[in-house]
Simulated scan of single mutants.
Amino acid sequence: MIVTKESKYTVVEAAYKRIENLFSNGVKIYFSFSGGKDSLCLAYILLDLIQKRRIDPSLLHIHFIDEEAIFPCIEETVKKWRKKFLMAGATFTWFCIQVRHFNCLNSLQDDESFICWDEEKKDVWVRPKPSFSVSSHPLLKERKDTYQQFLERIEADGITIIAARAEESIQRKKYMAKIGNVTLGGKCYPIYDWTDNDVWLFIKNHHIEIPEIYMYMWQAGASKKDLRVSQFFSIDTAKQLVKLNEFYPDLMERVTRREPNAYLVSLYWDTEMFRRSSQTRRQLQKEGGEEKKDYKREVLKILSNVRANFRTEHERKIAMSYKKLCIKAAPLIQEREWQKIYEALITGDPKRRMLRAVIQNIYSKARRET
């Protein structure tokens, strides 16, 4: 159960106090920096506290995992903050390492992962590595680790602060509601209770320079909740590829050379291949231009033979999780959830994010109706 309480502090004041409390323990503090809007807010607070001599910069170790396929303005933003933190006395490590990254475009091939900075594809990297970047580490399992697994291993002797917020998803809110005292190897979320409005107001009030891609996305019609910048090939962010030519004319060519299937996003973005249910598609269905699917029937058909319909063991494992849900909760699943399940099975759900969301929706509706 999630309980919300009023506080005598504003969310900004609370974030400052949480960070000061963490540093008062005298242990290493790791900061996973991304260059995105939330991360910039947390970076500003950290630097502000250092400059006011309220926290010890020698305890602060910033890690940036360069995912290769990132916007040029993100790279420039991170470089600027790297210089600021180094000048303030903190440690800043820029990793360009071979880690696995889930790639929704690879569902069309036999492999399931995008390898960042793949040495076997060095000639088609999206961009060159910065000269100061770190390319290896004794604790890294190259080409096997995700960056999350790698960071957990190297940050086990301290506390990691992350600029994640509960508002971004119900699953994250439930997870954060269960967090108790933070110990070594644990994670802390100083701005977990900030809303989108809190983030943008903080950026405005403190004149924080943001990557220009946010302005381009806003001008292109993205809503506030869609202003999220990440590696291009995850199912949540692949839609950014559609607008790439408008933002950076030469970048799409480099991305396509690195990942040939990237062109499919431009061709098929407004289809269920990328979990889209746009106004255009709904209007076509209404007018009879696109046949409306019986998603329940389609799901049951796909799950009737998991071994034949899914190529890899990982895909089959995910499919079995959905099959168990369908067997257990079939009477409670409504048309919208059947559609979500169908789209997840078609496009892939490697981290089970959609599965958790569907489960939450099904049982939340059931509780409201009883």
Score class of each variant (00 low, 15 high):
237 T>W: 02
288 G>N: 01
14 A>N: 05
1 M>D: 10
98 Q>V: 03
83 K>Q: 14
167 E>T: 02
296 K>Q: 06
230 S>V: 00
41 C>W: 09
151 L>S: 12
87 M>T: 11
19 I>G: 01
41 C>S: 01
22 L>K: 12
84 K>H: 02
53 R>E: 15
46 L>V: 03
71 F>K: 14
33 F>C: 02
251 L>N: 09
110 D>C: 02
8 K>W: 01
42 L>D: 07
226 D>W: 13
48 D>M: 09
320 M>Q: 01
275 R>I: 00
267 L>P: 01
312 T>H: 15
159 I>M: 09
279 Q>W: 09
329 A>S: 06
279 Q>M: 04
185 G>R: 00
250 D>N: 10
368 R>T: 02
343 E>S: 10
337 E>P: 08
167 E>F: 11
121 K>S: 10
151 L>G: 06
203 I>C: 04
255 V>R: 08
310 F>H: 05
113 S>L: 13
3 V>I: 07
335 E>F: 09
230 S>E: 08
169 S>Y: 04
55 I>G: 08
253 E>H: 15
25 N>F: 15
200 W>A: 11
79 K>V: 05
206 H>L: 00
12 V>D: 04
92 F>E: 03
25 N>W: 08
5 K>N: 10
84 K>W: 09
349 D>Y: 01
206 H>K: 10
333 I>L: 11
96 C>V: 06
31 F>M: 00
23 F>E: 05
267 L>Q: 11
281 R>F: 03
134 V>D: 00
143 R>L: 13
47 L>D: 00
359 I>M: 07
137 H>W: 14
345 L>W: 13
296 K>L: 02
314 H>N: 02
170 I>K: 14
212 E>K: 06
316 R>C: 12
182 V>P: 01
360 Q>E: 07
261 N>A: 03
121 K>Q: 06
99 V>C: 14
282 R>M: 10
14 A>D: 12
84 K>L: 05
349 D>L: 03
